[in-house]
Nucleic acid binder design. Structure first.
Lengths: 215, 215
DNA sequence: TAATAAATGGGGGTTTTCCCCTAGCCTATA
DNA sequence: TATAGGCTAGGGGAAAACCCCCATTTATTA
């Protein structure tokens, strides 16, 4: 019997998965979490074999949860689930100890297969995810270190500037808001461009939103 | 017996809803669609009592489907489902004939209630959605017509330009790619700024991504 | 403590974006 | 057959963004 904890903020989704798993005699759902914060307390009490973990969770996101879990409860196998087939998500959560990654558009059969595979200690990725990873690897090989798609740390001040850029403020407005000189903001802008590997403001905003770089 | 067609591109989600509904004796799922294009052909053949319709569908989005459905098959009651509690989505799909709107984070009980309510010809909105609409109404009253946040249609050419802007291309590059003059691209940019109510490129990109304006 | 990173800001430049105007041509549709 | 909207494109100018260069001060951390 495989015991499972489901963590996803969409109730309907959780109910759905539970309904699917109910028909399986060798799988049992022992808990549900609707945000990131309640996962660790639950696992402290009951240790499930598998955590079905949504990557985008309110409270504390799936990647952080996975990281903590991996160091404190390595026995729990994490199967990540996400709406998005984004290379950055996949890579990051795998680097933090997830054993598998499937998309929310995979069907019942594949879900069961993924659970059983991960439970046996192996890793499982859906086809689409595998393709994404492969593409990513190929790109990073091509470009050397140009677009390994991980970003250097963005400093506190840079983040503030970035936030205001995304909110459509001009450099002058940002300078006024932060009580610093135009030149300083320009300097932050330019390091943001270089850190995020963007060509212009459009890229800055796109990369920021696509990678949820702001709180 | 209420017959239901589920339209959502996430297989797992569709399976989930189906599992939930399977236990109900007076509800029957008679079909599944995984994109917007296959909905109308299906309905032409078999007319379900209710269409559970995801707002964000590939191929043809929920709003368009709803519009067409409303004129061709008004007997089919549409219950919209969405991840997002976005005022713009809610208002727009309701204006196009949906009878109800629930979020994907609503549970099994509420789903069943929503289905039965909509089937009886009444409308159903989850609490969160109701709140959003009320807030929206209050805001639109406050600001007059400033940010009712609806976007006029973006034309085919504008979409192409927008896509290339988001991909970090400059106006000159876009002109070269589309084999049109710099001035024409500038003219498209400017109508995009005005249509999307953006102040600059940053806003253009943010609004585009936040509202998934591109395929 | 010495090296590193962050935050600040200046000079001086080019490129890009944004804004105002105008205007012809085409197509769908009321 | 008008009227509207979409696509095209020009002139000319102001504002903003982007690109080098550089320097000082202040934290942080190895």
């Amino acid at each position: 019997m495989i015991s499972i904890l489901i963590a996803d903020d969409h109730t309907m989704f959780v109910d759905g998965i539970e309904s699917i798993l109910k028909t399986e005699s060798d799988v049992q759902v022992i808990g549900r979490c609707y945000d990131g914060l309640s996962i660790l307390p639950f696992i402290k009490e009951k240790q499930p074999d598998i955590l079905l973990l949504d990557v985008n969770l309110p409270g504390k996101n799936g990647i952080e949860v996975c990281k903590e879990l991996n160091s404190k409860y390595p026995a729990v196998n994490v199967l990540a689930i996400s709406m998005f087939n984004e290379e950055s998500y996949v890579t990051e959560i795998l680097n933090n100890g997830a054993k598998g990654y499937i998309l929310k558009n995979t069907g019942r059969e594949e879900l069961l297969l993924a659970i059983k595979t991960v439970n046996s200690g192996k890793t499982y990725f859906s086809k689409e995810v595998t393709n994404t990873i492969m593409k990513g690897l190929m790109n990073s090989r091509k470009n050397g270190s140009k677009k390994t798609s991980f970003f250097p740390k963005i400093s506190r001040r840079e983040k503030e500037v970035l936030q205001l850029i995304v909110e459509e403020h001009t450099t002058q407005e940002i300078a006024d808001k932060l009580f610093i000189s135009l030149k300083t903001v320009e300097s932050h802008r330019s390091s943001l461009l270089s850190k995020l590997n963007a060509r212009n403001t459009a890229g800055l905003v796109r990369i920021t939103l696509e990678n949820k770089l702001l709180d």
